[in-house]
Amino acid sequence: MTNIDWEEPFCGEGANCFRLGTDEDGNGYISIHGEEDRYLTDGRDALRNLIRAIQAGKADHLL
């Protein structure tokens, strides 16, 4: 299991919260607050899933 140092959650008004994190190797992670065991790492898949979350209204405060 990767040891991820999560930042404080970022919450938009009336929207889900998300968290950004890094590991000891400097890799980046993003997760919905409360679901930190289901995270995405940097890369094409992370961007694709983030866009899907925005489209589904889960991260609309990023727009």
Rank of each mutant, 00 (worst) to 15 (best):
L47G: 06
N49M: 13
I54G: 02
Y39D: 01
A46I: 02
P9L: 03
W6N: 05
D23E: 09
E7G: 05
E7M: 09
S31P: 07
G43T: 09
L40V: 01
T41S: 12
R52V: 00
R52E: 14
A46L: 05
I54D: 01
L50R: 13
G14H: 09
H33V: 06
I32V: 14
Y39T: 01
D45C: 05
F18G: 01
G26R: 02
E24D: 11
E35M: 12
I30P: 02
G34P: 05
L40A: 07
G28T: 11
G12N: 10
I32S: 03
D25P: 00
I32F: 12
L20M: 14
S31Q: 08
E8L: 05
N16L: 14
L47I: 12
I4E: 06
A53I: 00
G28F: 09
R38L: 04
R19Q: 15
E24P: 00
I30N: 04
D23V: 01
A46P: 03
N27Q: 13
L50Y: 07
E24T: 01
E13I: 11
W6E: 08
R52K: 14
I51E: 10
E36T: 09
G34F: 06
I54M: 15
N27V: 02
G21Q: 03
N27C: 07
E24R: 05
G26L: 03
D23F: 03
T41Q: 11
F18A: 03
I54R: 15
G43E: 11
I32K: 08
F10I: 14
E8G: 01
E24F: 00
L50W: 12
G12C: 10
R19T: 10
N27G: 06
I30V: 15
L20W: 08
E35T: 06
R48A: 13
G28A: 13
E36Y: 05
L20Y: 11
I32R: 10
